[in-house]
């Protein structure tokens, strides 16, 4: 590790993305990818300022209930139905360093596996007290936490009998636009994970395991909520120890 103990914003280029660790674009087991996957080779580009910069969001934009999905859509005095859980973790970069001020957004189905969306047709009931979205910003240690209910599994039209394992969708904003990432978190011990065509779009089993949050008994709040820990790793910046300099620069 090349950790440098200064607080200057980093401006270096990022490590190249290891695309063998991510799902490829074309994964016919997940049928929608067939017509939505680029077929030409990507243009490999050493990142320029347009990619290594990115917006940073302020803690001021976060409302008091933004990280509480049990209450942020509920009528006053009521709460969402389901198993109460806390999801927490840290956002790190590939060099293992905390990434502060990261906007983390999340969305999910309700306890019965139903989304609040007009195109959603699953017969499970809508929970009048559950909207299904939340957000937070990581602190100086890269840590984040939110409270929610454990989402239900749901069937989806892909194969004849495909079900999504219980999952929470995550959108993560690092400091460079190339760190932009959307992923999904799964729950330890769920046998449905290994049957899911979307999960199995990821070729490497240990990469899939990186998306499975273990139950965190130590952080369980007695008589209130169980906890799951989900750490997220964003692309790291190359060290700028000996960057090439053009003559005269």
């Amino acid at each position: 590790m090349f950790d440098k103990s200064n607080s200057q914003p980093e401006t270096g280029p990022f490590f190249a993305r290891d695309r063998s660790w991510h799902p490829p674009a074309y994964t016919p087991g997940y049928k929608t990818s067939v017509l939505r996957s680029p077929q030409r080779a990507l243009l490999s580009l050493g990142s320029t300022l347009s990619e290594i910069t990115g917006p940073v969001f302020g803690h001021a934009m976060i409302g008091e209930l933004d990280n509480d999905l049990i209450h942020n859509f509920a009528r006053p005095g009521e709460s969402a139905i389901g198993e109460r859980i806390i999801v927490h973790g840290r956002v790190l970069d590939e060099r293992g360093r905390a990434v502060p001020n990261v906007l983390v957004e999340f969305w999910q189905a309700n306890a019965g596996g139903r989304y609040r969306h007009k195109k959603e047709t699953y017969l499970a009931a809508i929970d009048p007290n559950f909207g299904g979205c939340g957000r937070t910003i990581t602190d100086a240690d890269g840590a984040y936490a939110f409270r929610t209910i454990r989402p239900g599994a749901y069937p989806w039209p892909n194969g004849v009998n495909d079900w999504r394992p219980a999952h929470i969708h995550f959108s993560i904003f690092g400091h460079g636009f190339v760190q932009r990432l959307i992923t999904q978190m799964y729950f330890e011990g769920d046998p449905m994970i290994w049957k899911c065509p979307i999960v199995n779009a990821i070729p490497d089993r240990s990469a899939i395991e990186q998306l499975i949050a273990p139950m965190d008994w130590g952080n369980t709040v007695p008589m209130d909520s169980r906890a799951y820990k989900f750490d997220i790793v964003l692309r790291g910046r190359r060290s700028t120890l000996f960057e090439n300099r053009r003559e005269g620069n």
Partner: peptide, 13 residues
Amino acid sequence: YLKETPSQTAGPY
């Protein structure tokens, strides 16, 4: 070094 968290589709919603 750590591995980048693998991507998953944003899904229909």
